[in-house]
Lab assay of single mutants.
Amino acid sequence: VTTYKLVINGKTLKGETTTKAVDAETAEKAFKQYANDNGVDAVWTYDDATKTFTVTEMV
């Protein structure tokens, strides 16, 4: 189990959160659900070296 981080650069929601998951795909599903629940529709990137997902909402 690995800890993954999500950085949110949204128009109305900004911040960071983490989740523990067995792999990046599982973490991504959890983070996308979190973003969807909070109304963030954005572009996703992932950095495997830092285990960090970044979501940037387009203006």
Score class of each variant (00 low, 15 high):
V1T: 10
V1Y: 12
V1K: 08
V1W: 12
V1M: 13
V1H: 11
T2S: 11
T2A: 09
T2D: 10
T2W: 11
T3H: 04
T3I: 12
T3C: 13
T3N: 05
T3Y: 05
T3V: 12
Y4C: 03
Y4T: 01
Y4M: 00
K5G: 02
K5E: 02
L6Y: 01
L6V: 03
L6D: 02
L6T: 01
L6C: 12
V7G: 01
V7I: 13
V7W: 03
V7C: 07
I8T: 04
I8W: 14
I8G: 04
I8S: 04
I8H: 03
I8M: 12
N9Q: 06
N9S: 07
N9T: 06
N9D: 09
N9A: 06
N9E: 06
G10W: 14
G10T: 15
K11P: 14
K11F: 14
K11G: 15
K11E: 12
K11Q: 14
T12Y: 15
T12F: 14
L13T: 07
L13C: 15
L13E: 11
L13M: 08
L13D: 09
K14T: 11
K14D: 07
K14V: 12
G15D: 11
G15V: 15
G15I: 15
G15E: 14
E16W: 11
E16S: 08
E16H: 09
E16F: 11
T17F: 15
T17L: 14
T18Q: 09
T18K: 05
T18D: 04
T18V: 07
T19Y: 14
T19N: 03
T19F: 13
T19D: 02
T19I: 14
T19M: 14
T19C: 14
T19K: 05
K20C: 13
K20I: 12
K20R: 11
K20V: 13
K20E: 11
K20M: 12
A21E: 03
A21Y: 04
A21M: 02
A21G: 03
A21I: 03
A21L: 02
A21T: 03
V22F: 10
V22Q: 09
V22M: 10
V22T: 12
V22L: 08
V22I: 12
D23V: 02
D23E: 02
D23R: 02
A24N: 04
A24E: 05
A24F: 14
A24H: 09
E25Y: 10
E25W: 09
E25D: 09
T26L: 05
T26K: 04
T26D: 07
T26M: 09
T26C: 06
A27R: 01
A27C: 03
E28Y: 15
E28F: 15
E28M: 13
K29H: 07
K29W: 07
K29Q: 11
K29Y: 07
A30H: 13
A30M: 10
A30T: 13
A30E: 12
F31K: 00
F31D: 01
F31T: 01
K32D: 01
K32N: 03
Q33S: 07
Q33C: 08
Q33N: 07
Y34M: 07
Y34P: 01
Y34C: 08
Y34W: 14
Y34S: 03
A35N: 04
N36Y: 14
N36K: 15
N36D: 13
N36P: 08
D37S: 10
D37E: 14
N38H: 14
N38T: 12
N38P: 07
G39C: 12
V40D: 04
V40P: 06
V40A: 06
D41E: 13
D41Y: 12
D41I: 13
D41N: 13
A42P: 09
A42Y: 13
A42F: 14
A42D: 06
V43L: 09
V43G: 04
V43A: 07
V43F: 10
W44G: 00
W44M: 10
T45N: 07
T45D: 09
T45E: 11
Y46A: 00
Y46K: 00
Y46S: 00
Y46R: 00
Y46W: 02
Y46V: 00
D47I: 02
D47P: 00
D47T: 03
A49Q: 10
A49S: 11
T50V: 04
T50I: 05
T50K: 07
T50M: 04
T50W: 02
K51I: 01
K51W: 04
T52V: 05
T52A: 01
T52M: 02
T52P: 00
F53V: 01
F53E: 00
F53L: 02
T54G: 01
T54L: 05
V55M: 13
V55P: 01
V55S: 03
V55I: 13
V55W: 06
V55R: 03
V55C: 14
V55G: 04
T56F: 07
T56Y: 08
T56I: 09
T56V: 08
T56N: 06
E57T: 05
E57D: 11
E57L: 05
E57H: 06
E57A: 05
E57K: 05
M58E: 12
M58R: 09
M58F: 12
M58D: 12
M58H: 12
